[in-house]
């Protein structure tokens, strides 16, 4: 679905990474780790076409992202659910409408009405559906972001430090939700520093752990 072929990226004269190759296959579960500033968020942005690789190719469902026009990138993003650390909501819209936003922009609002109640119950936000995002706690925002990421039933879920603002119990709950999605055949890629989260995931699902260090992507896991 998403494949990196010898991808290199840098900015300001600094190389973040180079010769990076990897693939996200259906049903795969990846963790991406590495020190701060190693390029984890950049790698995720390359996955959903917000950035374009100057070296190598990022293939999105068989198409070179660098050669895709803006509309094609937008359509590809509809197949990717994204959970940001800072969540990024439309603060003037209630939580329910924020969760429905991917369907709204795709002109598929009708599908949302049936799924929304179930999805809100799944992430435990039924009571908060009418609230505005600034009124939610950090954990509630993360769960709302996850609900928004999965409402279109995307093929891939990308999460950037999804548990950064959460306590352990809430992190476990979020991980459980992501594992459930993975068992439905979704590819999951989580960028995180949280080793406890990775260990908890390894105990429940087959994961592949990638470490971004010194501009290279390494296979990790044995030491975790």
């Amino acid at each position: 679905m998403i494949e990196f072929q010898s991808v290199g990226y840098g900015y300001g004269g600094r190389t973040l990474f180079q010769g990076l190759s990897m693939a996200l296959a259906p049903g795969s579960f990846h963790f991406l780790t590495g020190p701060s500033g190693a390029g984890k968020t950049t790698l995720l942005k390359l996955c959903y076409g917000e950035l374009v690789a100057p070296q190598g190719r990022v293939m999105l469902w068989g198409r070179n992202a660098g050669a895709m026009d803006r509309d094609a990138v937008a359509l590809a993003r509809r197949r990717i659910g994204i959970v940001h650390q800072d969540c990024q909501f439309l603060d003037h819209l209630p939580v329910a409408e924020n969760i429905l936003l991917p369907l709204t922009v795709a002109g598929r609002q009708a599908e949302g009405d049936a799924n929304l109640r179930e999805l809100l119950a799944w992430v435990g936000l039924t009571q908060q559906a009418g609230q505005l995002p600034p009124e939610l706690s950090g954990g509630e925002r993360q769960r709302a972001a996850l609900a928004r990421a999965v409402i279109t039933s995307p093929d891939v879920i990308l999460a950037d430090e999804p548990t950064g603002n959460l306590d352990w119990e809430m992190s476990q709950r979020l991980l459980t939700l992501l594992i459930e999605l993975n068992r439905m055949g979704k590819a999951v890629l989580i960028a995180t520093h949280d080793l406890n989260l990775i260990r908890a995931a390894k105990a429940q699902v087959a994961t592949r752990i990638l470490r971004l260090r010194d501009g290279r992507l390494q296979q990790a896991g044995a030491d975790l």
Binding site: D71, I82, L90, L101, V105
Partner: peptide, 16 residues
Amino acid sequence: AQVIRVLRLVGARDIY
């Protein structure tokens, strides 16, 4: 700008 960023993130086309 932030609204536009969020809309793009969820797959909104420029014309939308």
